[in-house]
């Protein structure tokens, strides 16, 4: 029953919270660029307006099947996370959801979407190792893969044991939030060389689904960041907000990377910060024994 309530709360609250977060994001970004910016509730107006629009589509598959799967599995992955299930399973469901977005783009057979889809796969390949390493790292620090028990065990010690993993995770957070320099597959702004990449062909309600799914995606990623500080909710929420602010800052100060640099840098960061952190942690524990 408690789990059911948690799941329900997640499903209902996430769009509200992450929509607001996106609103703040746009205001702050505008301020950084010296613009006035939209009202706080603009992301909600956008989505509502998209639902009002005509459903223009290249074929029925991507809208009625792949994109719905994208949303459904993103929500499912979030539910698994916020009800405290196995972190690895959360990540696998998360990947599954993302694959459906890629498939939707492929199925349109449009050149821009196609290249966007290839790049999105590349981004997934870049980000996935760090996510899994973070799961293994949290396991080594807390002796559990379950989000629930990680959250109850995690304290200040957790972040002291896993500083490298946390830095690596912040690095790929940029990928997952689709922020520059890693917005190669699709961007929040339609000024890309491949138009809107993955989302080029999605219009009206289809695009609204993608937007909503992205809110859930953001919630899961920030949730994983939260997990490192779960012992103290105040610190944890502050860290999450600071991390998000840093992402906005990076978004506005970096030029877009090419795919080669993206793959190389993220695998290098994953290995150097994430991998070595795990190895050092292992050695420390061996020495202790």
């Amino acid at each position: 029953m408690k789990l059911l309530l948690a799941a329900l709360a997640f499903v209902i609250l996430t769009p509200v919270v992450c929509g607001l977060l996106a609103g703040f994001d746009r205001i702050i970004t505008a301020k950084m660029q010296g613009r006035y910016g939209p009202p706080l509730l603009q992301p909600f107006f956008d989505v509502l307006k998209l639902f009002e629009k005509e459903n223009l589509m290249v074929n029925q598959f991507y809208h009625s099947f792949y994109l719905i799967c994208y949303l459904v599995f993103m929500v499912a992955s979030g539910i698994l996370f916020f009800t405290g299930q196995d972190l690895l399973l959360v990540i696998f469901a998360f990947t599954l959801a993302d694959i459906f977005l890629v498939l939707a783009a492929y199925s349109t057979n449009s050149p821009f979407s196609f290249i966007g889809a290839e790049r999105e796969l590349l981004l997934m390949m870049s980000a996935e190792p760090m996510l899994l390493i973070a799961a293994v790292g949290l396991f080594m620090a807390t002796k559990s893969f379950k989000v629930g028990s990680i959250a109850s065990v995690a304290d200040l010690n957790t972040i002291l044991l896993l500083p490298g993993v946390f830095i690596g995770l912040l690095f790929i957070l940029t990928i997952k939030l689709r922020k520059s320099p890693f917005d190669l597959s699709t961007s929040h702004h339609a000024h890309q060389e491949i138009v809107k990449g993955v989302t080029t062909e999605f219009a009206g309600p289809s695009l609204a689904l993608v937007e909503i799914a992205h809110w859930y995606e953001t919630a899961i990623m920030l949730g994983i960041i939260y997990l490192f500080f779960a012992g103290n909710p105040v610190i944890a929420v502050s860290v999450v907000l600071v991390a998000y602010f840093v992402e906005i800052l990076i978004d506005n100060t970096f030029a877009r990377f090419k795919w080669e640099l993206t793959l190389k840098s993220s695998w290098a960061v994953t290995f150097i910060f994430g991998g070595l952190n795990l190895i050092v942690l292992f050695i420390i524990e061996k020495v202790k024994i």
């Binding site: 074929n59 598959f61 694959i99 349109t108 796969l121 997934m124 996935e128």
Partner: peptide
């Protein structure tokens, strides 16, 4: 993670309409 990439792009090829 590498397997993700090659299976994903293979699927993409198949399902382009």
């Amino acid at each position: 993670s590498a397997t993700l990439f090659f299976w994903g792009k293979w699927m993409g090829k198949l399902i382009a309409i």
